[in-house]
Amino acid sequence: MDAFTTHTGVGVPLRRSNVDTDQIIPAVYLKRVTRTGFEDGLFAAWRNDENFILNQGPFQAGSVLVAGPDFGTGSSREHAVWALMDYGFRVVISSRFADIFRGNSGKQGLVAAEVEQSDVELLWKLLENEPGTEVSVDLEAKTVRAKDFTAAFRIDDYTRWRLLEGLDDIALTLRHADRIDEFEARRQPWLPTTDPLPTS
C-alpha cells in the first residue's frame, strides 16, 4: 500500500445519500479474478445518464468525491473501493460511512474523510458553482480545503497512522504470531473444525 500524506485534486459533488455498493459497482462487474481494471464498473448504471456528474466536463478528472450521508452501505465488496481507486479517486468525503466500506478503504489507501453534513453542503455548492475546483486533503492535519473553505475531518487514529506509513495489516499482525499460538492452545476441544467427516 502506498503511503498517503496529502492529496489535491478535482472535487466531485455527488448529491446523493445512501450511495450503496451496488451503485458504486454493480454485481455484474464483480466477476473478475484480478485486482485491477474495475474503473469501468464505477457508478456504471448512473454513468449511462449523460447528466450524471462524472460525465460533466471537468468532473471527469475528479479524484476527491463529496457525497451525502451513509456512503458505501450494502454489500462487503471491496471492489467498491477498487473501482473508486482504479477510476482515480483517492479520497471520499461524506458525513457518514458504512462500517465495512470504511474498513475496506483503510486497507487500500483510500481516505474516507468524515465531515459534518453542513460541510458537505458547503462543498457541494462550491464545487457546483465552480466546476473543476480542487480540493486539498491533508491527512497529517486532518483538514479538507477548497478555495477559502476549510474543515476538519474525522478518521480513526490507527487507520490514519497506517495510511500515513503505508503499512500492511498482515505483516503488523504476524509480529504477534506467538500470541496467536498461545490463544490456539487455549481453545475449547468441542469447537468444530471443517475437516471432512468420516461418513461424508
Binding site: R77, V81, I100, G103, K107, I170
Partner: peptide
C-alpha cells in the same frame, strides 16, 4: 460479520 477481501486474506 461480513468482511472485505483484504480482511479475507488477513
Amino acid at each position: 460479520f461480513g468482511i472485505g477481501t483484504s480482511e479475507v486474506e488477513h
